[in-house]
C-alpha cells in the first residue's frame, strides 16, 4: 500500500480526504446526535444525490464541465435551508422535515437519472463511495470546507453547545438561535457534500452518527464525547480505506462496518465496566 500510495496521486487524494472527513464528520455529528437530528444527515445526503444526478445530466447532455461534486454541494446547501424552514413551519413535528426532504431528494434524483437515460459506474461510486474518485481539485475544495467547518465550530462552540442542551434557556439568555441553527445546518450540508466522494450517499450519515453513538456510551462530558467520536471516526476511515483498497470494495461499506465493530466494542466495554463496578459497590 505504502508504495502505491506514493506512486498514485489519486490514493493520496483519497487518503487525505479520508483523514479530513474522519475529523469533521464526527465532530459535527456530535452536535447532530445530541440535538436528535441524526436523520437530517440522511435527508441531506439524498438531496445531494439529486444534485449529483443533476450535474451528471448536465455533463452528459450539454457537455458543460461543472463537476457533479459542486452541483451536489449546491443542492445540499439549498436542501438544508428548506429543512430549517420546514422545521419552523412544523414546530411540533420537527422530524417531518426529514421524510419531506429525503423523498424530495430521491424523487428529483430519479427524474434526473432517467432524463439522462441512466448512467454508469460514476453513479455507483457516488452511492457507495470510491477510493479513486477524488481529484486534486476536489481535495482542495474539501480542505477549504474543513477549514470553514473547523473555524465556525470553534467560534460558535459555546453557543451551539448551549442551544443543543437547552434551547429555551439559550434564547432567554439572548443567544440568536435562528442564525446559529442556520449556520449549523449549512455546515452539515457542506460536510455531507465533502464526505460523499468517499463514503457515498447511502452511508454518509453513518460516518456522522456511528462514531458518536460509540463515544456517547463511554465518554464523560461533551468535549470528551467529541474527542472520542473523532478518534473512532478516524480509525474507521483509515481501516476502511485500506481494506477497501485491498479487497476492491467501495470504502463506504468497509468504513461503516468498521464503525459498527467499534460501536459494538464500546457497548460491550461499557457493560463489562458497569457489571464490575456494581460488583465492587456491593462488596
Amino acid at each position: 500500500m505504502l508504495e502505491s500510495f506514493f506512486e498514485y496521486e489519486f490514493l493520496q487524494n483519497t487518503f487525505y480526504t479520508g483523514l479530513l472527513i474522519g475529523l469533521i464528520a464526527p465532530l459535527l455529528g456530535t452536535f447532530i446526535v445530541v440535538r436528535r437530528l441524526s436523520l437530517i444527515a440522511d435527508a441531506l445526503s439524498h438531496v445531494t444525490l439529486a444534485g449529483i444526478a443533476f450535474g451528471l445530466l448536465i455533463e452528459k447532455k450539454f457537455a458543460i464541465g461543472i463537476t457533479p461534486f459542486y452541483t451536489g454541494m449546491a443542492f445540499s446547501v439549498i436542501g438544508s435551508v428548506f429543512v430549517e424552514q420546514l422545521r419552523r413551519v412544523y414546530k411540533a413535528y420537527q422530524e417531518l422535515a426529514i421524510p419531506i426532504i429525503l423523498s424530495g431528494g430521491v424523487g428529483l434524483s430519479v427524474i434526473f437519472i432517467s432524463l439522462a437515460n441512466g448512467f454508469n459506474t460514476d453513479l455507483y461510486n457516488y452511492l457507495f463511495g470510491s477510493v479513486s474518485a477524488v481529484s486534486r481539485s476536489d481535495l482542495w475544495m474539501i480542505i477549504a470546507i474543513s477549514i470553514i467547518v473547523l473555524t465556525t465550530l470553534f467560534l460558535f462552540y459555546k453557543e451551539l453547545f448551549m442551544l443543543s442542551f437547552d434551547e429555551e434557556h439559550a434564547v432567554v439568555s439572548g443567544i440568536h438561535a435562528k442564525r446559529i441553527h442556520f449556520i449549523f445546518i449549512v455546515l452539515t450540508a457542506l460536510v455531507i457534500a465533502a464526505s460523499i466522494r468517499i463514503v457515498g450517499v447511502l452511508l454518509v450519515s453513518a460516518l456522522m452518527t456511528l462514531p458518536v453513538a460509540a463515544a456517547i456510551r463511554i465518554a464523560k462530558g461533551f468535549k470528551q464525547t467529541i474527542l472520542f467520536s473523532i478518534i473512532f471516526g478516524e480509525t474507521s476511515v483509515i481501516i476502511g480505506l485500506i481494506s477497501g483498497y485491498y479487497f476492491e470494495i467501495p470504502p463506504g461499506g468497509t468504513i461503516v462496518v468498521t464503525s459498527i465493530i467499534i460501536l459494538l466494542l464500546s457497548i460491550s466495554i461499557k457493560k463489562i465496566w458497569f457489571i464490575l463496578s456494581r460488583k465492587k459497590a456491593i462488596q
Binding site: 453547545f161 439568555s173 462530558g221
Partner: peptide
C-alpha cells in the same frame, strides 16, 4: 432535559456564562 446528553456538571454550569462572555 435529555438525560442522555453527554455534559458534565462543569459544562452545564458554564452555559450560564455563555451569553455574558
Amino acid at each position: 432535559f435529555n438525560r442522555g446528553f453527554p455534559a458534565t456538571v462543569n459544562e452545564v454550569v458554564s452555559m450560564g456564562l455563555t451569553a455574558k462572555v
